[in-house]
Computed example of a mutant assay.
Amino acid sequence: MQGGTGALGRMRAAWNEARRRWWVRWGVDLALLALLFAAVTAWQTRRLPGGGTPAPDFTLRTLAGETVSLEALRGKPVVLAFWAPWCGVCKMESSNLSQLQSLAGDSAHVVSVAVAYDDEEAVRRFASEHGVDYPVLLGDDSTQRDWRVNSFPTVFFLSPEGRVERAVVGYTTLAGLGWRLLL
């Protein structure tokens, strides 16, 4: 038993010595922060479609009056952002979606679906005030229900074949959107 206690004591001493180094403390802190972030993300998206499941289909009208079906977007990756005009976080994220659209160019579709709005004018006002230059589709309660969206913004990343590969809830930086698009 003496050897086990001695080995444990040496491990504790080595750990205490390592903790005195700034880069070890920072590394442990960053690892814990990353673990916490991953756990919160997993919890937020636990009920959303993902993991390669087929995306719920829709045909929705744009603000310009055209109709767009999810089927028509196949062949390229799709970033599909659900938002509400009253959502403050959605306002902050809208410029990131515009920048992603510019960076992605013709290699991906960046599309948004407005839901949980009182009238179409609120959606138009949001798009105008925030310089939205990506397609805005007008969703409804059934679209929101089919996609199981209950928090805003919620962004889905679809494969070119129309499968939901991943989702994220809440504000996402341009780097976060781009990274998830490339995965």
Rank of each mutant, 00 (worst) to 15 (best):
R166N: 11
P77H: 03
V28K: 00
L63C: 07
G75V: 05
G176P: 03
R148L: 12
L174Y: 08
T5L: 14
V78Y: 00
R12V: 15
R166A: 13
T53A: 14
D119L: 10
C87W: 03
Q2L: 14
L137H: 01
C87I: 04
E17D: 13
T154V: 07
C90R: 00
F126I: 08
V40S: 09
G6I: 14
W43V: 11
F126Q: 02
L138K: 07
L8I: 13
D141M: 12
R61N: 10
G105Q: 06
P49V: 04
A18M: 08
V164S: 01
L103S: 06
A175T: 13
F58N: 04
R74I: 02
V115F: 02
V28G: 03
K91G: 01
A122I: 06
R19Q: 15
G9I: 10
A18T: 00
G176L: 02
F82Y: 04
V149G: 01
G170M: 04
T41P: 07
D57R: 12
Q2C: 11
V78R: 00
N150Q: 14
L158S: 01
V40L: 11
G131H: 12
W15A: 15
A64R: 11
P56V: 01
R166L: 13
V132C: 08
V68Q: 05
T62V: 09
P56R: 04
F37K: 12
P56N: 04
L181W: 03
R166P: 06
S102F: 09
P56W: 03
